[in-house]
């Protein structure tokens, strides 16, 4: 069995199993653990609605923080959007998703995929540079850096594989798939679960504050 066969067969399959099982494990493990209802009378009759509104309103920092957070906010947006587009809109990825789900949609031209991948990697580097230069703000742990590396690897290997640089194409492709497999397996058990948690944590904050009549 070649490295490529291993990568796109057992390795990616096992990682997807871990990903799916892990996501459900984490989601239900926390969501079933609901806290008891707050029995006090809400100060805002529309508290629930305003609480859910927070999911969207917190997508951008309050104006007071614009100056101090604009760098990482913009970079984070650039990173998330370009990464999402690279994941779901370039043809080789669509082919992989189609092979798994049967769903298919038109892809972006590959040169745009390269541009988006490059932008994603550049913004990720911009974000780690801020983290490294502001240790007091981030109070980083080893896990933060491990996560950064695990996110950066698929972008790096994907760009290298596409451009046919570095090792032979089939080896780079195998390394790209293996790095994606590592990301899938790591995702549910790391801070990368924020892909799901952000909805619940924002809503929970919004609900709690709205119940007390705090404007957020």
């Amino acid at each position: 069995m070649s490295l490529l066969e291993f990568a796109r067969g057992p390795a990616i399959h096992a990682s997807l199993i871990i990903l799916v099982a892990g996501i459900f494990l984490r989601l239900l493990g926390v969501l079933v653990l609901t806290r008891g209802a707050d029995l006090s009378r809400p100060r805002d009759a529309f508290g629930n609605f305003k609480g859910y509104r927070t999911v969207f309103s917190r997508a951008w920092p309050s104006s007071e923080f614009t100056t101090t957070t604009i760098y990482q906010t913009v970079m984070a947006y650039v990173f998330h959007i370009s990464t999402l587009l690279v994941v779901v809109a370039i043809v080789p990825h669509i082919e992989f998703i189609t092979s798994l789900t049967g769903l298919s949609w038109p892809g972006l031209p590959n040169f745009i995929g390269v541009a988006l991948g490059t932008i994603a990697l550049a913004s990720l580097i911009a974000l780690i540079l801020r983290r490294l230069s502001n240790p007091a703000v981030y109070n980083s742990t080893l896990g933060d850096y491990v996560t950064w590396i695990i996110v950066a690897l698929p972008l790096l290997t994907g760009l290298m594989a596409f451009a046919h640089v570095g090792l032979r194409y089939e080896t780079m492709l195998a390394l790209h798939i293996l790095s994606a497999a590592l990301l899938f397996a790591y995702m549910p058990f790391s801070k990368l679960m924020h892909a799901f948690w952000f909805i619940f944590s924002r809503a929970q904050s919004g609900l709690a504050y709205a119940h007390k009549g705090v404007r957020i």
Partner: peptide, 16 residues
């Protein structure tokens, strides 16, 4: 993958 989703959900709910 479907079986993994069910197993993960059961384990998570059970733990909670």
């Amino acid at each position: 993958l479907g079986a993994a989703a069910l197993a993960g959900a059961a384990l998570g709910a059970g733990a909670a």
